[in-house]
């Protein structure tokens, strides 16, 4: 087989069966016309150079697009990714964090636990991002090649759509909503596993800092608060910008947060007496005072964070 026939074969093997023979014959006679009576490789190569890459020639014969997703579909493609990807990442992050918190963490240390949770969640997110992009791209790839030329597979843009666009200054970023979800779940996880996770570590061993019976007593409150938090996050996700009702609900949520946190933190026997005596052995300063100040600073931090969040919502919703 000479190189001319190799070239022709490269083209015809990539086009529909029905036109193969005809294209092959035509290419053969064309290439012979181009080389004239010169049998040298130089002449043949010059002719083939003019015909160009056999893949491209074949695609043009078969009327196949030489792109993955064309301009008619590209904006829709990007829009679908922008909608689906955050949802997928959010769900996977939540599921991965829940799954990890369910695992027993008795044997591992804090840092080990965090690193493993971080790596596993990261891997799960990476996996879902790759999967999402792949399947969306594949779908659009198929649409691009099956919808007849000149037809628009999705409804085209209309000026009326502008009425639905919300001002950017009041929009809620997906990142912050995602953070709400993850933070809520982490908080509950931390609360449930406080016995393992929050410990006083000394040379002679470690001991849970908080009194398990107090925590158990307030567990229903925490669950209710978490459910409220998730509900607010879902609400935010659905409206995606600050409205007056949302801001008011969010304000109420933050107030309840402060109330519940204060209620738990101000329990006199929250910090277990064993932990206090353990610490007292180690340090010379008054442990009671330290723990009191510790609790106060945690409470003040919670109040500040909640008030900032509450104020942000109210300001964005009402200042217009």
């Amino acid at each position: 087989m000479n190189l001319r026939d190799v070239y022709i074969d490269e083209v015809t093997s990539r086009i529909p069966e029905s036109m193969r023979q005809d294209v092959a014959l035509e290419l053969e006679s064309t290439i012979d016309d181009m080389t004239g009576n010169d049998p040298s490789d130089t002449a043949l190569f010059e002719a083939l150079r003019q015909l160009g890459d056999p893949h491209i020639l074949a695609a043009r014969y078969a009327n196949r697009p030489l792109h993955l997703i064309g301009p008619a579909l590209f904006t829709q493609y990007v829009n679908v990714i922008k909608i689906v990807l955050p949802i997928a990442v959010t769900l996977v992050t939540i599921l991965s964090v829940i799954g990890y918190l369910n695992n027993s963490i008795d044997d591992t240390s804090w840092s080990q636990f965090l690193i493993q949770a971080f790596l596993q969640t990261g891997a799960a997110i990476f996996n879902v991002v790759v999967q999402t992009l792949f399947w969306i791209t594949l779908t659009f790839f198929i649409i691009e090649r099956t919808v007849p030329e000149g037809e628009v597979p999705f409804s085209s843009w209309k000026p009326e759509q502008l009425k639905k666009v919300k001002p950017r200054s009041t929009s809620i970023s997906l990142g912050s909503i995602l953070f709400d979800f993850v933070a809520t779940i982490l908080m509950v996880g931390l609360y449930v596993n406080a016995e393992q996770l929050i410990r006083v570590v000394t040379d002679s061993g470690s001991y849970p800092l908080l009194n398990a019976s107090v925590l158990d007593q307030f567990f229903p409150f925490v669950i209710a608060l978490a459910a409220f938090g998730i509900a607010i996050a879902i609400y935010k996700w659905m409206v995606r910008h600050w409205t007056k009702p949302l801001a008011l609900w969010n304000a109420l949520f933050n107030i309840v947060w402060i109330a519940v946190t204060a209620l738990i933190l101000l329990q006199p026997d929250l910090i277990s007496s064993d932990a206090i005596s353990l610490m007292a052995d180690q340090v010379s300063i008054d442990v009671e005072t330290i723990s009191r100040w510790g609790i106060r600073s945690v409470l003040i931090t919670v109040i500040i964070v909640c008030i900032i969040d509450l104020a942000e919502g109210l300001i964005k919703a009402f200042r217009r």
Partner: peptide, 12 residues
């Protein structure tokens, strides 16, 4: 004219 354009064009 690019030859890789012409022959497919004729077919179209």
């Amino acid at each position: 004219i690019d030859q890789s354009t012409l022959y497919p064009l004729l077919r179209r």
